[in-house]
Design a protein around this nucleic acid. Structure first.
Length: 584
RNA sequence: GCCUCCUUAGCUCAGUGGAUAGAGCAGUGGUCUUCGGAACCAAAGGUCGGGGGUUCGAAUCCCUCAGGGGGCACCA
């Protein structure tokens, strides 16, 4: 086929719709040169998957082209059909009213893709090339080290890591970053809580106060401290305890994360932004550009607020005039006591990231950070930065559900469910899938009973079982003494309609991958994985390899099919950060 | 009050402005007994929250109303 529009890149896994689009554009250009179509701009060509078999596998609605080309849609479709370049991909096309052009993908081409899949580098199977290699910074999780990871943080962690994997599958290099603050009152309380626990371990009669951290992990930690240092820390204040606790907690967090397949490239300490003075530099630059002012209340504040401020006797604070950038109210960046609010170091952090070598930044936040993210964006604009290469993904809440009842995830008094507890209960693969399979702007009800169910109600088992079944066939073939390359050179034209349709479904993966990447929507991978499994199992039921009534030629062709299917399931699971088990 | 996300089958949810809106579960009726039954097949199930609008064409875009989640701290 003519591929000039697709450039020189390896065509193996260019999504089919992209190839069809290139063919259509080529036909349109030809028709324009021939004077059949006027030289007019026209809307983007839409190539969609057909819903019904009698509409081919892909179709292009030409109705939207009618205005540009001053012809009836059905005639436009006919002209395009006649002008399509020769292609090994497309067998035939058909025009359907009111103006659809349906594409029938070549059966030979479809089955031959099994060879392409099997011969490809498995680590990069279906990898999309979105230009030269670029570097993305994905910031997620960013929980302060005050305790073990709580389940409430899990969604952001999984979504962040998976978006990273999605980018990697589309040719990016990904730098995963975790932003944290180990200063402030919270961390002081943490240190002091450990100090109290330490004293208790040594038999002192002292109790935690209400504002102390109540979690049992500090008891264990205090025990370890006694084992290491005996009573030599008796007279120390909160500070060394805080440092000890922080180091231990980071160790716990990293252990937990490694259990669900997440590894960060950098833990970025907010305090570094104070040490290198960049927090104050940001404030000064905002001031120099005239975007700040000193006042007790914001400009245009209500009488009520002014009165309230007077009653409290507040001193002036530094405000960022975010209303200039579309905000409904200005925001405080430095409190009257001289301490910055959270937003100022966060702006400095983003400036820091923008100054590093990244081609784009992606932030994953809980939806409760909506206003914060907007304010940071506005401040960056105020500083003169182009924020168009910063994407913010906000994730909605997760509710743990057991037996139809929502569980409380309160962090008070240490009664929280840790991520470790959840991993112990349902396993890492289930967590990853359940946190991924819904659009990020939808809430999740995480059903703990469904999570451990071993039936096709549970999508994780259903998907992984497809891989297990493929692996089972390979084992069986080997056990019966067939050579490892038995399927090499098999006559793939022996595969039936159902088997070919399944291959077509596998070949949708590149377009799904690209679309999920473009929309930063990893749930589309999860949905696709389940769809693929749902198409796999019925076929598996009927298309046996080693049945008595299966001829050797058919057996070899089917073995080739399952070999490729196994690789595709493995790849899909890997992109989601899940395991592809051989047995279950 | 303002901002934001959600509302699609009994339930949980997919759905890129295009043809007759799709899955699973539950319910109904069947099949087979395994290269892992942790299975498969069939029929049934819908005013896409309500109402306007834009468009040749709207679940999808815009406006509006209603219901639910989250946010709007001199917290992080």
């Amino acid at each position: 086929m003519s591929c000039e529009l697709l450039g020189d890149k390896n065509l193996s896994f260019v999504p089919i719709p992209h190839r069809i689009e290139a063919m259509v554009i080529s036909a349109i250009r030809q028709a324009q040169q021939d004077g059949v179509f006027p030289e007019a701009d026209y809307p983007t060509i839409l190539v969609q998957r057909s819903k019904r078999a009698d509409q081919g596998q892909y179709s292009v609605p030409c109705m939207a082209l009618a205005k540009s080309f001053q012809m009836k849609p059905i005639d436009i479709a006919g002209v395009i059909a006649a002008g399509l370049p020769e292609s090994e991909l497309i067998d035939r096309t058909a025009v359907a009213p009111p103006g659809f052009l349906n594409f029938y993908v070549s059966e030979n081409w479809i089955v031959d893709q099994l060879n392409t899949i099997i011969n490809a580098d498995q680590a990069t199977l279906f990898q999309q090339d979105v230009g030269q290699v670029r570097l993305a910074n994905v910031e997620f999780l960013s929980a302060n080290p005050t305790g073990p990871l709580h389940v409430g943080r899990t969604r952001g962690a999984i979504v962040g890591d998976s978006i990273g994997r999605l980018l990697e599958a589309c040719g990016w290099k990904v730098h995963r970053e975790y932003y944290f603050n180990n200063g402030g009152r919270q961390m002081e309380m943490l240190g002091d809580s450990l100090r109290v626990r330490y004293l208790q371990q040594l038999g002192h009669d002292t109790e935690l106060q209400e504002e102390h951290y109540q979690g049992d992990y500090l008891v264990d930690m205090a025990q370890g401290l006694v084992e290491k240092h005996g009573d030599s820390w008796l007279d120390k204040d909160w500070q060394p305890f805080k440092e000890y606790a922080e180091a231990e907690i980071f160790r716990m967090i990293e252990d937990t994360l490694s259990r669900i397949g997440i590894k960060f490239d950098l833990f970025f300490n907010e305090l570094d932004l104070y040490e290198d003075k960049s927090v104050w530099a940001v404030r000064d630059q905002l001031a120099a550009r005239g975007h700040t002012y000193e006042a007790v209340v914001s400009e245009g504040a209500s009488e009520e607020k002014i009165q309230e401020a007077q009653e409290k006797g507040l001193e002036p604070a530094t405000w960022f005039r975010s209303t200039t950038f579309g905000d409904t109210e200005d925001r405080i960046i430095v409190r009257s006591n001289g301490e910055p609010t959270y937003v100022l170091p966060d702006v400095a952090y983003h400036v820091n990231k923008l100054k590093r070598e990244f081609d784009r930044l992606i932030d994953i936040f809980g939806s409760d950070h909506y206003t914060e993210a907007q304010t940071v964006d506005r401040a960056l604009q105020a500083l003169g930065y182009d924020t168009s290469n910063i994407d913010v993904v906000l994730t909605q809440w997760v509710h743990l559900v057991r037996g139809g009842e929502k569980l409380s995830m309160s962090t008070r008094k240490g009664q929280y469910v840790t991520l470790d507890d959840l991993i112990d209960e349902v396993g890492p693969d289930v967590i990853r899938y359940f946190m991924l399979d819904r659009s990020t702007d939808r809430e999740i009800n995480f059903d703990l009973e469904l999570a451990v169910k071993q039936s096709n109600e549970n999508p994780v088992y259903y998907i992984q079982n497809a891989h297990v079944r493929c692996a089972g066939i390979m084992r069986q073939v080997e056990a019966r003494g067939y050579p490892a390359d038995w399927d090499d050179g098999a006559d793939l034209s022996l595969l039936n309609d159902e088997e070919r349709e399944f291959i077509t479904k596998m070949l949708e993966f590149p377009e799904i991958l690209l679309f999920a990447y473009e929309n930063l929507a990893p749930h589309l991978i999860a949905t696709y994985a389940l769809d693929l499994a749902r198409q796999f199992h019925p076929m598996y039921e009927r298309s046996r390899v080693l049945g008595e009534d299966v001829t050797e030629d058919v057996a070899r062709a089917r073995l080739r099919l399952y070999k490729a299917a196994r690789l595709v399931f493995q790849r899909v699971l890997t992109v989601m950060g899940m395991s592809a088990p051989e047995t279950m």
